[in-house]
Every structure is written in structure tokens, then in C-alpha cells.
């Protein structure tokens, strides 16, 4: 698991909105440029971005290990065919390159995750998405971050209690149903207390946000994001 780590790297000093733009640009470019030269450029960019956030590529790959199963199975599945010639190397190779590009997208996002505080991302969401939806999403992200460990502990308590009562020997649908219903009822009890607390503290549509500002460092990041997005548009839209 890779989460925010306080540091003073280049990526840490960037505005969260520029990091968001760079990730979007990179994802769009990685999913549209399929040539070998593009893959080299994208790999170099990804390594550069990991270095800018102080993440070692190996740690980033370990963080993405859950995705690796399907990413490594997909080329095999694409290569296998029912009937002669049984193995189509070209199809397998195309999918292997596609898997590799997806892995690069995952690595770049770990760089952003490691270098961005959730508090700053929340402010970025609230400033980027206008009006009430942005406000609710911003506060929602903050609440989700706060309640995630609490609800994880709730779920663990429920599972321990089930295990103590030989719950592991019950049918899968009963186990799933019990965890779901008890988890939901505990979460909603918490939600009802939370909503009372929010109302008691004058939960408003127009609170004061933490300050965010673009600095000179953000200019190259935004330029990179624009270049990547433009390169995608030029490839996808026939001129």
C-alpha cells in the first residue's frame, strides 16, 4: 500500500491540480500511442515522475501487484487460440504492450498518491468542481478518509465475532449477507450520529477552504500535461 508520505520533493511542492492534469494527460497519451517509440518516451516520463516524487520504481511495482495478475494473464489469453496455430504471437505481443502501458499509468498515479495530501486534494476538488456538488464531494472525501479506519475496524469486529461462532462454516451467501447487513447497520448508526453532529456545527454550503495556489514550479507540469493531451488529440482526431 502506497499512501501520502511527507517529504520535500518536486512533486510534493506542485499544486494538486497540476498533478491531476499530468496524470490525466499521461493516461490519455499512454492509452492512445501504441508505437514502440511512444512506449520508450512514456517509460522515461514515468520513471522521471516517480523520481520527482521520491518513489523507487520497484516499490511502485510492488504497490501495483494486484493488477499484475490480470496484466500478465491477458497476453497469454490473447495469444491462445482454439485450433491451429494454437498460439498467435502477434495478438499476445499487442496485448503485452497494452498491459505494459496500463502498468505505466498505475505507476504514475502512485507518484501522485505519495506526494499529495488528501486535505489538498479535497481543496482541489472543491475548487475545480463548482457549486454544491463540489462542496459535498470535497467534504465527502474528507469524511471518507476519516471513517475508513473506523469502518475497517467495525468489519473486522464483525468477522471476528462470526469466526468465534463458527461463522466460517456457514454458506457463502449467509456469510456475505451477515457481514453486509451488520456492516451497513453499524455504518448507518454512525452516519446518523454524524449528521446530528454536522447540524450541531452549522454544516454550511459556504465554508472557508484551505488556501491553494499555483507556483512557478507548476508551469512546466501544466505544459507537460497540455502537451500529452494535445498529442492524444492529434492522434485520435484525423485532421
Amino acid at each position: 500500500m502506497l499512501t501520502y508520505v511527507p517529504d520535500d520533493t518536486l512533486a510534493h511542492r506542485l499544486d494538486p491540480r497540476s498533478k491531476l492534469a499530468v496524470q490525466l494527460g499521461f493516461a490519455a497519451a499512454a492509452l492512445t500511442h501504441t508505437g514502440p517509440r511512444a512506449i520508450l518516451v512514456l517509460s522515461a516520463l514515468a520513471i522521471g515522475m516517480l523520481a520527482a516524487a521520491g518513489v523507487s520504481p520497484i516499490r511502485a511495482v510492488i504497490a501495483a501487484r494486484y493488477a499484475l495478475v490480470i496484466l500478465s494473464l491477458a497476453p497469454l489469453l490473447a495469444a491462445l487460440t482454439l485450433g491451429p496455430p494454437w498460439i498467435e504471437t502477434d495478438a499476445g505481443l499487442t496485448t503485452a504492450l497494452a498491459s505494459y502501458r496500463v502498468l505505466l499509468v498505475l505507476l504514475v498515479s502512485t507518484a501522485a498518491v505519495r506526494s499529495t495530501r488528501v486535505r489538498d486534494s479535497r481543496a482541489a476538488i472543491q475548487r475545480t468542481i463548482p457549486g454544491r456538488p463540489g462542496h459535498l464531494l470535497g467534504i465527502g472525501v474528507a469524511l471518507l478518509f476519516r471513517f475508513l479506519p473506523v469502518l475497517r475496524a467495525d468489519i473486522q469486529t464483525i468477522r471476528d465475532a462470526m469466526a468465534a461462532r463458527l461463522g466460517a462454516q456457514r454458506h457463502a451467501h449467509e456469510r456475505a449477507g451477515t457481514i453486509a447487513l451488520l456492516g451497513l447497520s453499524r455504518a448507518f448508526d454512525r452516519a446518523d450520529r454524524l449528521s446530528l453532529a454536522l447540524r450541531a456545527r452549522c454544516f454550511a454550503w459556504n465554508p472557508t477552504l484551505p488556501p491553494l495556489s499555483f507556483s512557478r514550479l507548476d508551469i512546466p507540469a501544466l505544459l507537460l500535461a497540455t502537451t500529452l493531451l494535445c498529442s492524444t488529440l492529434l492522434t485520435t482526431i484525423p485532421l
Partner: peptide
């Protein structure tokens, strides 16, 4: 509040 906690769940 319920929607936020369901997302956390």
C-alpha cells in the same frame, strides 16, 4: 452522511 459512510464502507 449516509451516502458518505456507505462509500467508506
Amino acid at each position: 452522511a449516509r451516502a458518505a459512510l456507505l462509500a467508506a464502507l
